[in-house]
Structures are given as structure tokens and as C-alpha cells.
Design a protein around this nucleic acid. Structure first.
Lengths: 330, 330
DNA sequence: TAGCAGTAATAGAAGATGTCTATCACGCTG
DNA sequence: CAGCGTGATAGACATCTTCTATTACTGCTA
């Protein structure tokens, strides 16, 4: 695959630059002036270039300089090399602003469908030259992608598994109790107290979803009991709950969407309410860090404002709780 | 027109090479090994490259190396630059043999139509990869072309005007007396003596042709008289002579062709016979010199062998008188 | 014809740049 | 915890590049 020989390049870009300057001005002296070097330096470099190429590029006596026949072609090539090099430099400058080009961001499935619509339009609006590629997968897969370099960042819930990354918090996403329309647990108006859930029949997500672990941990505390069946996605879960199979926890982020699709009763929890912390994470030491912080900020601003469609039983949360979070260090 | 900025290139091909090696091997150590440098050297160069580009190409901690998002594009560009540079090198090597590519050779009109047919086929046969472009013009124009670099060489008659060039003699081209079929001057069998031409009516070429000057000089010695009319080409001249308007000198090179077209009587001159020296000339110090000497040799070999179709009155000349010429110095 | 103004090439000293070896700091692995 | 791997760092040494001053040559001009 390697194109270049293992041996170091025998000539330098500088030499090519000198040669091109001479070819244009047909004068060593003037070329040297343009290149901001002394004429002897330029002379020496050109001589060396000609030596290494094994070709006289210029035919020169004491009063004139002509481009050799062979030189014509080689100088054209030299210009191409220099142009490519300049392009590289320009591309680097452009890319120097990391908010240009391609950004591959992973998202967990319990966030993706609810956040991406607003989030991706916001990013498009904020950074016109940034193309975002979203990859939906479970936390473990995303972290592996990050580690391997196939992802630049990931939007996920912070858990103990999420280590060796830097992060910027995007939002605190509280959990909400969701029941079927006939469920007595959903009928009350007040905030849910832990004791209410004792022995409740709880439906949860499939293995591997971080939200499953989080909800499960909470249910364990509340001494609720998990049913055998595990849903593969939040919509499925909501559907099953709406049909009266049991109760569940839903992330507040999903509530607006799911409640619109399924008949659900929703109640918020009494403090300390269960919740997850959504954050944008990236590899420790990623050069995109500063850019990603800005991206996180934009996502935070685009985070769906509280909009529980199902009546007063769920109190409003503060619009951007994440704002109050301390910034990630480093 | 200039593509590159006047300022020197901030990075080197070597740095690009190092970067590409690291991108491929994903290891500084292995890349250093492949590039035949120590790992610190490579590290330093890469760091410098990243500095000048203002971009981290690699994300590296102590145990792994990843290519940055921005690095992906820039490294692709780096490979292109290196490829172009390699191409330049290869092109130089190919062009190192000057008998490859394009050779622009000027020829004077009194040589061109008679020599080119055999000559160009011989060159094509000898140097398959050489393309020859022939430019026909008078000596002065050719010399200017040489001087300006628009010609690589010229095939012409050596005169006092031809200075500041190196040359390799191709042939000695003796002059021949040509008369109309009815002319008493042409009727004799013996070699022409100078005295025979006294007061002869001589037709010559137009101004600017070197052959005119040469023939004129000889006629002046012979005390012949030039007619008013001047021909624009040797064929015209031959035609006019055949029609009986006067006599002329023809270069032996042209005799075969012209005698086939026009009714001419031809006689060679007694020694010292007038002649011209045809040579391939090029700028002093041209890098093509050695190649051009070979070309001259080929032309010499391809020089039309003596073939006077009009009887015995013109003796054969040695096949390659030029072989006896001393080689041009320097 | 001598001298001047222009060119590129050359020589030698000074400076910048690249490279080396040796070492460190860190993470993984037994 | 020791040992091996990584890349980064430090300081000495080479090499390369550049500089100034000069030479050699040409063409022009007084």
C-alpha cells in the first residue's frame, strides 16, 4: 500500500519552490529575492536539486537562464507538488476549526429518537460547515467505537461503565412513573413515593440498555418486581404498559413522544427522584475537545423544553437543569 | 501566476512521510524504524508538523495511536503530495536519458526537404522514445530560436554568423554547377574550373538564405554576374535554370531531387571545390550536448549517399566526408 | 578600450535544523 | 510488584542551510 519508498525524499519542497521561482523569473537573483534568500543559497539548492534529479533544469551562463527541455516537464510537476502541498496547508487551516467537516457521534437508543430531531437541526443551524453522522447503539458498543476511533463522541447516560473519557453534561433526565390508564398507581396526583412501588409489577427494557440498569437499580431499592418480559425499545415498553401489563419508568425525555402514541398515566417521583445524567463524552485528550464542548452546549440549548402533554400530574422541571451542573474538568 | 506563497513552505516532505508511516503502522516506533530514524526524531518532526498545521493529526497516549478525524483528510492529502513528488522523481529519471521526449530542431530551407525524409526516419528508428519537431527557417531565425530556448538544436551550414554555439559536423556538401540542358557551360565533361564562370549569368536564391551568400561569395571570386531575379527556393531556382535563364550553383544534397524534377546538366567543381559544411549546432553548454552528438551521428549515418542521377559528369564524393572532420571541441 | 553594471558560481564562517542516545512517565501484563 | 511496551523529553552532536564576501564572466557605455 505504501506509495513512498522507505528511503527519505531526496529533495525538498523548498528546492522545488526555488526552481519554480527561477523558471518564472528566469533569473537566479530575482528568484532569490522573491524567496527571501541570498542568491548563493538559491544557487546551491538548485544545484543540489539538479544533482539529485540527475537533470539540468536550467541552462545558465553568466547572462541568461533558460529552462531545459526536460526542465519544462519537471517544473510543471514541481508546481503540481507545491500546489498539492499548499492545498494540504489550506485544508489544515480550514480543519483547524474543528467545527468543520465530519463529526461521528454515537447515541444510545433511549435518547436517539427523542433528542436527535431538535438536536441535529440545531447543530446544522449553528455550524453550517459541520456534518454530523449519528450512530445509534448501546453504551458498551459506543464506548468501544470511541476507543477505536470510529466515533468522535457519544451522547449517553453517565454510568459507572463510562470511564476514561471526558464529558460535558447535556441534561439531567428524571425518570417518570408510567402506568396504563386503568392502573391505580397512576391514578394518584401526588409525586410518587418509593413505598408505593413495593411489589409493583415492573416492565423493563432488554439487557444491554443502560436505562434498564438504571431503572432496575431504582426498582430494587423500591422492592418492586420485574416481570419476565423485556422490551427491546421504549416505544414497545410504553405500548405494553399502556395495555396494562405492568408499570414502568420512562425517561422524561421520552415522555412527550411516548405519551402521544400510547395511553399512559405519568407521575413524577418525590425527591430524591431517580434520574440519569445525559452527557456528551469523548476520548480523553481528543483534539476535538474544545469543539465538542461547544457542540454539547448547542445540544443543551436544543434540549427539548419540558412539555408533558398529559395533564398536571407531572410537574415541570427546570428548563435546563444541566446549566447548573459544574463543567466537566480538564 | 505563482501558485505558492512567497514564503517558504512550513513543512517538509520528510514530515509528511513520517506522518504517513505512522498513519499506516499506528505506531511511532515502527514508523520510525521504517523511516530509518530514531523514534524521538520522528516524534519531534511530527510534533512540529502538527504545530505548523495547527492540527493534531494523531491522538496518542502512551499505549495507542489513533488518526484524528481531521488527520484522515490531511493524511490523504499528504499521500497525494508524496505521490506527486515521487512521480517527479520518476519523471526525472526517465528524462535523465535525454534521448527521450521532445527535441525541437531547426533546419534551413536548403537542407530541409532533401535531408529530412531519410533523417527523420533514421532518428525514429534509432531513438524510439524521441519525438523530433522540425522547424524550417533561415539561419538567422534559427539562431535566435536557439538563443531564446525555443529550439534545442539546428541543422544548418556553418558560416561566420554561426557563433556561440557548439556543433557537430554532419556532412560536407559540395556545390555543383547546374545549367539548362542547352547551356554550353553544362555540356563539358570535365570538372568546372573557376575561369569558366567568368561573366556567366548566375541565378541565386533570395536574401537571407545562407546558401545565397555562400554561392555569391564563390561567384564573386569567379567574377560571374548575378542576375536580377532571385529565387525563393531551390526548386524554383532549378526550374528557372532548367528553362535556360542562366546557370546556378546547387548544393550536392539537392541535386538528386532537383535533377529529377527539372532538366539540368550538372558538373562538379575542380578543387578547391566550393562547399558548405552542414552541422548540427546547439547552445554552448546545453545539457543536451551529449545526446545531440549522438543525434548528429545518426543524421550523419542517414545522410543520403551520393546518388547523382545525371550521368558521370559529377564524380562521387566520399560517403561520409564529415567523418574525417575533427570533432567539435568542448 | 577601459571601466561599469549585471549575471551566476564559489569559499568559508555562522546559524538553524535534524538526529542521536539516554532517560522519563505511563499503562499493560505476567 | 517487576518487566516490557509505548511515546515524550533533554542535551550533545551532525548535518544542512544560509549568510557575506568574492570571483569570473558578459554586455554595455563613456
Amino acid at each position: 500500500m505504501s506509495i513512498t519508498l522507505p528511503t527519505s525524499h531526496p529533495f525538498s519542497l523548498r528546492q522545488l519552490q526555488y526552481a519554480v521561482a527561477v523558471a518564472e523569473l528566469l533569473s537566479f537573483r530575482k528568484a532569490a529575492e522573491r524567496c527571501f534568500v541570498s542568491q548563493p543559497s538559491l544557487s546551491a539548492q538548485l544545484q543540489q536539486l539538479e544533482d539529485t534529479l540527475g537533470i539540468r533544469l536550467f541552462e545558465r551562463n553568466q547572462r541568461r537562464v533558460l529552462v531545459t527541455t526536460a526542465g519544462r516537464e519537471l517544473l510543471a510537476r514541481a508546481e503540481r507538488v507545491l500546489r498539492e502541498a499548499d492545498d494540504l496547508l489550506a485544508a489544515a487551516k480550514r480543519a483547524g476549526d474543528p467545527l468543520t467537516g465530519l463529526l461521528r457521534i454515537g447515541v444510545i437508543p433511549t435518547v436517539s429518537p427523542y433528542l436527535l430531531p431538535s438536536c441535529s437541526t440545531a447543530l446544522r443551524a449553528a455550524y453550517g460547515r459541520l456534518t454530523t453522522v449519528w450512530v445509534e447503539d448501546k453504551t458498551a458498543v459506543l464506548l468501544r467505537g470511541l476507543e477505536q476511533g470510529s466515533l468522535d463522541a457519544a451522547l449517553l447516560a453517565l454510568t459507572a461503565d463510562v470511564r476514561d473519557v471526558e464529558h460535558e453534561t447535556v441534561a439531567i433526565d428524571p425518570f417518570v412513573l408510567a402506568t396504563g390508564p386503568a392502573d391505580p398507581l397512576g391514578a394518584r396526583d401526588a409525586e410518587v413515593r418509593l413505598a408505593e412501588l413495593r411489589d409493583a409489577q415492573v416492565l423493563l427494557l432488554d439487557d444491554g440498555h443502560c436505562f434498564r440498569e438504571q431503572a432496575l437499580a431504582f426498582c430494587a431499592t423500591a422492592k418492586a418486581r420485574e416481570l419476565e418480559f423485556r422490551a427491546t425499545s421504549l416505544p414497545t415498553l410504553a405500548q405494553m404498559v399502556a395495555s396494562g401489563m405492568g408499570v414502568t419508568l420512562l425517561p422524561h425525555l421520552a415522555v412527550a413522544t411516548e405519551a402521544a402514541r400510547a395511553q399512559l398515566l405519568l407521575r413524577r417521583f418525590a425527591k430524591p427522584a431517580p434520574h440519569r445524567t445525559l452527557a456528551l463524552v469523548w476520548r480523553k485528550g481528543s483534539p476535538l475537545a474544545t469543539a465538542l464542548r461547544q457542540v454539547a452546549q448547542t445540544i443543551r440549548d436544543a434540549y427539548p423544553s419540558d412539555s408533558l402533554p398529559t395533564g398536571p400530574q407531572v410537574a415541570k422541571h427546570s428548563q435546563s437543569p444541566a446549566r447548573k451542573q459544574p463543567r466537566a474538568r480538564r
